[in-house]
Structures are given as structure tokens and as C-alpha cells.
């Protein structure tokens, strides 16, 4: 099969970008989308041109590195998969395919299809954890956790941190990302002691990183390669409200004598 690509080319963060067209010929429908780009890049290199920079690593839908807008949709036409799990059989012979990076103010383009997503790390550093000093933990089975709760926490934990939710949202909100991590930890008994600070700090970090507000359109959930439910956003909103109320009443600071 054969397709025409319209690819976003941008030399660096400050350069002006533009679309360029490439023909990709002799394709096998069982090729992955990235393998198709490999073929194009081999040819560009052979012709002495700069190959298309594209983020990828595991190529099996788990590392969250790949992140292309394909025909205006994060990770392309199929639901519940990443760019690297998109196969050429999802397109028709002769198609024109537009490929762009995930766009958001908080995700500046570094080159071509690669964006900088360190804002997600910042949110994690603000509260995406349970404090558990190495070596100081009780026996794992001393704390039984019902299967339903554990399964729900796992649903949230499946987030790969790719940023499709942000790219899909017209406000570039990161609420699905934040709610998935906070949701996982807040559901579990181990996560209770830090629940309020977690929610408040993660949301504050999200705002600070320049992500927009959530207006409950849930394009995020529809675009999520792990199909993380928008219900986690509702849960985050509830947890946030409770945390805000509770944070207004505080214990007296203890002083060392």
C-alpha cells in the first residue's frame, strides 16, 4: 500500500514549524505506524535529508513515549492504543495522513514530533507518591485490600503518562492524568494519611505548569490509550473539595523543647 504523509517539521523549540509532504510506498498493512516512519526515515537519510524526529521506545504501548497526533487524533484512529500500537491496516491505500506532535502550552515542541512533557514529572514530585521509607514496612499481607478496590486502583494505575489526555482537551487540561495517579493512591488504605496534601499539591502543581481547566467534556478519556475512566476526575474533584475544607482546620505546630 501507499500513503502520503503531511508531517510537522520544526527544527527546534523556537523555530517556526511547517508541514512537509512525503510519499511512503510499498507498505505492508501489518507494519506499525512507527515502522512505516522508519521506512520513510531510512529513505530520507539515504537521500541526505534530515529524518523526522519522533518519540518512541518500547513500541508495545507501555512506556508512554510515543505521542503523535494522527489525523487530528492523539495516537490515531483506533481506540485504546498508543501510536506505536497503530498499524497501517487502520488506513486505506492512497490516504493522506497528517502527523503532528501533541500540542499544549505545557508541552513545548522540541523538534518535529517530539514534545517536552516534564510538566508531568513536576506534578508527580509534588504529591504523586506514598511516603514509605525503604525497609520500614510491615508484612505485605498484614494489610488485606479487597479485590474490587485493588482492581479499581489498578485501572487508574494503568496510565502510561503519554499526555494524550492533554492533547485531546481543548483546554489542555491534565485532569485525567492527575486524577488517575491521585485516584490510585487515594483508593488504597496505604494512601490515606497523605490523601489531602496529595490532592492539593498535585492540583497546585498542575495549575502552575500551565495546564488548562477541566470543563467536563471528557475528550481525554476517549483519547486515552489505556481507556482511563473520567470517573476518576469526578473522584478527584470530590477529594479536592474535602481536602480544601479539611485543610482549613489544622493541628497546632509542635515545638521541640
Amino acid at each position: 500500500m501507499k500513503v502520503t504523509l503531511r508531517v510537522w517539521r520544526q527544527e527546534n523549540e523556537t523555530a517556526q514549524g511547517r508541514f512537509e509532504e512525503y510519499e511512503a510506498d510499498n507498505l505492508n498493512p501489518n507494519m506499525s505506524f512507527l515502522e512505516m516512519l522508519d521506512v520513510v526515515n531510512e529513505k530520507l537519510t539515504g537521500d541526505g535529508k534530515d529524518p523526522i524526529a519522533v518519540a518512541h521506545d518500547c513500541r508495545e504501548g507501555i512506556c508512554g513515549t510515543c505521542s503523535s497526533m494522527i489525523n487530528g487524533e492523539p495516537h490515531g484512529p483506533e481506540n485504546g492504543v498508543t501510536t506505536c500500537q497503530t498499524y497501517m491496516r487502520s488506513f486505506n491505500d492512497g490516504d493522506v495522513i497528517t502527523v503532528e506532535p501533541f500540542r499544549a502550552e505545557a508541552f513545548p515542541v522540541l523538534k518535529d514530533l517530539i514534545t517536552d512533557r516534564k510538566a508531568f514529572d513536576k506534578i508527580m514530585q509534588a504529591g504523586g507518591f506514598i511516603t514509605a521509607r525503604t525497609g520500614s514496612c510491615q508484612d505485605a499481607n498484614a494489610l488485606p485490600i479487597g479485590k474490587e478496590v485493588a482492581d479499581l486502583a489498578m485501572d487508574a494505575a494503568a496510565c502510561v503518562g503519554c499526555g494524550a489526555c492533554v492533547a485531546a482537551c481543548k483546554n489542555s487540561s491534565a485532569m485525567l492524568f492527575v486524577s488517575a495517579k491521585a485516584g490510585q493512591l487515594n483508593l488504597l488504605p496505604q494512601g490515606q494519611p497523605e490523601k489531602d496534601t496529595r490532592v492539593l499539591n498535585m492540583v497546585a502543581a498542575m495549575d502552575e505548569a500551565g495546564f488548562g481547566n477541566c470543563t467536563n467534556q471528557y475528550e481525554c478519556s476517549a483519547a486515552c490509550p489505556k481507556e482511563i475512566s473520567e470517573e476518576f476526575i469526578s473522584k478527584l474533584n470530590r477529594d479536592y473539595l474535602i481536602a480544601s475544607v479539611r485543610s482549613s482546620v489544622k493541628a497546632k505546630p509542635t515545638t521541640m523543647k
Binding site: 507518591f129 506514598i130 514509605a132 525503604t134 525497609g135 514496612c137 510491615q138 508484612d139 505485605a140 494489610l143 485493588a150 482492581d151 486502583a153 489498578m154 494505575a157 490510585q184 493512591l185 488504597l188 496505604q190 494512601g191
Partner: peptide, 10 residues
């Protein structure tokens, strides 16, 4: 033990 304490959903 460590991983469960961190919230790893085994």
C-alpha cells in the same frame, strides 16, 4: 512489603 507500602496494586 516495600512495594505494597508504596501503593503498588498487586
Amino acid at each position: 512489603d516495600q512495594c505494597v507500602a508504596q501503593g503498588v496494586p498487586f
